[in-house]
Amino acid sequence: MVILKGDERLDHLLAEGLRIIQSPSVFSFSVDAVLLARFTYLPIQKGNIIDLCSGNGVIPLFLSARTKGMITGVEIQDRLVDMANRSIHYNQLENQVKVVKGDVKGIARQLGYAKYDVVTCNPPYFPVDTNKHKNENEHYAIARHEILCTLEDTIQSASQLVKHGGKVSFVHRPGRLLDIVTLMRKYEIEPKRIQLVYPEQGKEANVLLVEGIKKGKPDLKILPPLYIYETSGEYTKEMRLMLYGD
Rank of each mutant, 00 (worst) to 15 (best):
L161W: 02
I180R: 05
Y41A: 02
E8R: 12
I59E: 00
L241G: 14
R9S: 09
G17K: 10
L226W: 07
A84L: 12
G69I: 14
C53E: 09
K186Q: 15
V119Q: 04
G17C: 05
L80I: 12
K115M: 02
V162Y: 00
P124D: 00
I228E: 07
G233K: 09
D117Q: 07
Y113G: 08
M70Q: 15
M239N: 14
G69S: 10
R109C: 01
T72G: 03
H139D: 06
Y198C: 11
R185P: 05
E75D: 02
L13T: 08
R176E: 10
S157Y: 00
P60A: 02
F62A: 01
K5Q: 15
D246Q: 13
L42G: 04
E138A: 04
M242N: 11
A114P: 07
Q195W: 05
K237W: 09
R185E: 14
I71T: 07
Y90W: 06
V171G: 04
I147E: 00
E152W: 08
P174I: 04
K215N: 15
F39C: 12
Y227D: 02
T231M: 11
V2A: 04
I76E: 00
D7S: 05
G57Y: 09
K237H: 13
Y116K: 04
I3R: 11
D117L: 09
V168K: 02
N135Y: 14
I49H: 11
T120N: 07
Q45K: 15
S23D: 09
M83L: 14
Q110F: 06
D246P: 07
S25R: 13
R9F: 13
E211V: 01
